[in-house]
Design a binder for these strands. Structure first.
Lengths: 222, 222
DNA sequence: AATGCCTTAAAAGTATGCAGTTTAGGCGGG
DNA sequence: CCCGCCTAAACTGCATACTTTTAAGGCATT
C-alpha cells in the first residue's frame, strides 16, 4: 500500500483522490487533512498538500481553514454550469461519435442496460454508476483534448446534480430514455442526432434540477 | 517592494505572475526559477513553487526540468481551443450585452478607436493592447462566473494567436472591422447581433491562423 | 442565562535543507 | 574535427521544523 509503482508521489496522490472524488467515494462531510493523508501514504505533508491544493484550484475541493472538503455548490453555480454544459457537451458528443471503438459501444450497451434495469429495481446507486459510466465513455472519446478537459473539470458538479435529481422518479425515466436513444444514435454513428440528444439530456437534467431547486429571486445577479 | 499588503504570499505571487503573463510581460524565452523568484520577493521557495505550479496546472506555464516557461502551444492545441471559443464566446458575449455599464462602453469606444488608428499607423503593439482591452471588457461583464472563468483560462493562448495573426494585414483589417461592428451591436444592446459577430470574430481569427499555420495531415488524431 | 472576550489547539503557510534527476558543456577518443 | 561519455551544476521533489492564522470552546462579566 505504501508504494504505487509510478512517478511522483504528488501526482499519484492527485490521481488517487481525483478518482475517489469522481467516483463519489468522498462523502460530503469528510474532512481531508494533509497530515492524516500523509500518514496514510507514509510521505510528508508536501506532496499531499500539492495534490490537495491542485484539486482545490481545479474546483474539486474546497480549502477551509479546517481541512479540505467537497465544495458546497450553491444552486447559482450549478445553474451556471448547466449553461456551460449546454454549450459544450452536444458538440463534444458529436465529435466523439465517430471515435467510439467497438469496445466503447459494448461498454455503453452494458451501462444502458444496467440503467434500464433500475427503472424496475429502483436501485439508485446502480443508476448513478451506470450514468457515470456512460458519461465517461463518450467523454473519453472526445478527440479535442482541450474540450475534453474543460468538460472533465466540472465532473464534480455533475455528481451533485445527479444526487439532487436522479432520485426523482420522473427525471429517472426521462433520463434513462434519453440514454437509450443516445446509445442508438451513437451506434448508428449519427453525429447530428447525438448532438441533439445530448442537448436534450442536459436540458432534461436542468429542468429537473430547477424543479427541485427553483431559482430564488435575486439569484441571477452576478 | 518586499511586502504587498494582502494575504498569503503564494496568492500574491500567483496574482502578480498571472498579471505579468496576461499582460504579455513574460517573453517566450524567459525561464522562471523558483529560487530566483523567491529571492526577488524575499521569501522561501515554497510559496513561489505553489504559485508557479498552480499557474502550470492552469495552463499558463510549462514546467520543464529547467524552470518554468511560457507554454509552447502547438498548432493542434490552438486549433482545439478555437473550437472551444466558437462554442463559448458568442453566447458569453450575448449574455454580457445587457450587463455592460456606460463606463464599459466608454472604454470599448476608446479601445476600438485606438484599434482603428492602427490601420494607418501599423503599430501592432497598440493593436494588441486595444484588442486585449476590448476582450477583457466584455468578458468581465459576463454574468455567468463559471463561463467567464472558463474563457479566462485560455487567455494565455489568445496571446499566442494574436502574435501569430494580427501582423497579417488582411486579418488586421477584418478584425478591426468586426471590432467596430461589435461595438455598435453592444451599444445597441442587440444581443443576437453580438452573438453572431463574436462567432464571426472567432472564425476570422481561426481562418487567419489556419492560413498561416495549415494543419498538418496527421494533426486531427487524438 | 446570555453575550462577548480570551485562550488554545488544529491546520495551513512558510522556511530550510537534502536528495534525486536532468541537462549543458567540457573532455577525451576516434 | 566530430561524436559520445562523463561530470558538475541547476533545478525540482520531498522531508522536517517552525510560524501564523482561525475556529471553537471555556470563562468571566453582566
Amino acid at each position: 500500500m505504501t508504494d504505487t509503482p509510478k512517478r511522483h508521489m504528488k501526482d499519484q496522490i492527485y490521481d488517487i483522490f481525483l478518482g475517489r472524488i469522481q467516483r463519489g467515494e468522498i462523502g460530503p462531510d469528510v474532512r481531508l487533512v494533509d497530515t492524516a493523508v500523509a500518514a496514510e501514504f507514509n510521505v510528508s505533508r508536501m506532496p499531499v498538500r500539492d495534490a490537495l491544493m491542485r484539486l482545490t484550484h481545479e474546483g474539486y475541493l474546497d480549502s477551509t481553514t479546517r481541512g479540505f472538503t467537497l465544495p458546497n455548490l450553491d444552486t447559482r453555480q450549478i445553474r451556471e454550469i448547466f449553461e456551460l454544459r449546454r454549450l459544450l457537451e452536444p458538440r463534444a458528443a458529436a465529435l466523439a461519435t465517430a471515435r467510439l471503438t467497438e469496445n466503447d459501444l459494448t461498454r455503453l450497451r452494458d451501462a444502458v442496460a444496467r440503467a434500464e434495469q433500475t427503472l424496475e429495481t429502483g436501485e439508485i446507486e446502480t443508476l448513478f454508476a451506470a450514468s457515470e459510466d456512460i458519461r465517461r465513455t463518450w467523454i473519453m472519446a472526445v478527440p479535442n483534448k482541450e474540450l475534453r478537459d474543460t468538460i472533465l473539470r466540472y465532473m464534480a458538479q455533475i455528481q451533485a446534480v445527479r444526487m439532487a435529481t436522479l432520485r426523482d422518479a420522473e427525471a429517472h425515466r426521462t433520463l434513462v430514455d434519453l440514454q437509450r436513444r443516445l446509445l442508438q444514435a451513437l451506434e448508428a454513428r449519427d453525429a447530428a442526432a447525438v448532438e441533439l440528444l445530448l442537448l436534450r439530456y442536459v436540458l432534461a437534467g436542468e429542468d429537473s434540477f430547477l424543479r427541485l431547486h427553483p431559482p430564488s429571486a435575486d439569484s441571477d445577479a452576478s
